[in-house]
Nucleic acid binder design. Structure first.
Lengths: 155, 155
DNA sequence: ACTGAAAGGCAGCCGTT
DNA sequence: AACGGCTGCCTTTCAGT
């Protein structure tokens, strides 16, 4: 399963599926003026080689339940490779930690944490992040609203 | 097209489709021990009423091209309703601005901006954000790596 | 509100160039 | 590497409870 080079057809397919993952092979084939089986082949390879990680439904969570979202900025007091990996692995396991970024500059990591309310957020932060021995300081930015959250990269 | 109340079946469907948007009605029906046509009905309504915003393919962008990602934290010098909306609308139009959050505290907005490299990021920031008359200061945090980016909310 | 059956269309596979 | 045909399964619809 080596990494292939993508040609313009692959890129076009990725562009389309990033916007609408439920497009049929037939629709894509028609739009690119190629055969259906070529498109099916390409998509199979794109998935097999990990270019397409998953196809998911995006839920409008605000219609389902009310949420509390925060962006804790975390400073570690140890910057060894092992510690960085350990922190990231720790964060992986929590469904509430939806995003985790390693940053340059004053903070080491920024997280996006989604919880039912501010109380549960504080508890979560204290018990699951603050207690980690290699975590120094945490500064939380609280979200008032999200006006954009795109999953489609410019290709 | 009123908003419906979701029952446990709807929630279970959302849970599944958030994880794998290409699950078939048949698979979901089997897993919930309901008929296929009931599941098809529910999903049609969930989409029609906007609970499911879209179904998209998630692309492993690092395999496709190298990127530069930054999180500018933006302070406005005017906090009127109109200004806030204007800023958000401005951000909506840029494909490179993938996320836009309104925050409490020291900064008003945080963006996630994805560009080809640091130079184009600086240009973009200066020409498209810094030039806005109501933008005060901007502090950029640069991303080294992304270890988690989930799109599935805990339901 | 939920089920089951029937019809059409699509995906997946294979043979051909 | 790309195409077209075939088969089986899935989606979609509709009548029924």
């Amino acid at each position: 399963m080596r990494a292939r080079e993508l040609d313009e057809i692959d890129i076009e397919i990725l562009r389309m599926l990033q916007r609408d993952g439920s497009m049929t092979y037939k629709e894509i084939a028609y739009s690119l003026k190629k055969s259906m089986s070529l498109i099916a082949d390409r998509i199979r390879l794109l998935k097999m080689n990990g270019f397409i990680k998953a196809t998911v439904a995006l839920v409008d969570i605000n219609k389902v339940k009310s949420l509390f979202v925060a962006f804790p900025h975390v400073q570690l007091n140890n910057h060894g490779e092992d510690t960085l990996n350990q922190f990231q692995n720790e964060m992986m396991q929590y469904e509430e930690v939806m995003e985790c970024y390693h940053l340059t500059g004053h903070f080491d990591f920024m997280l996006k944490i989604v919880m039912p309310d501010m109380n549960s957020y504080n508890t979560f932060l204290r018990e699951n992040i603050g207690r980690l021995p290699y975590v120094g300081s945490i500064q939380s930015f609280l979200m008032l609203s999200e006006s954009k959250h795109s999953t489609a990269y410019k290709l």
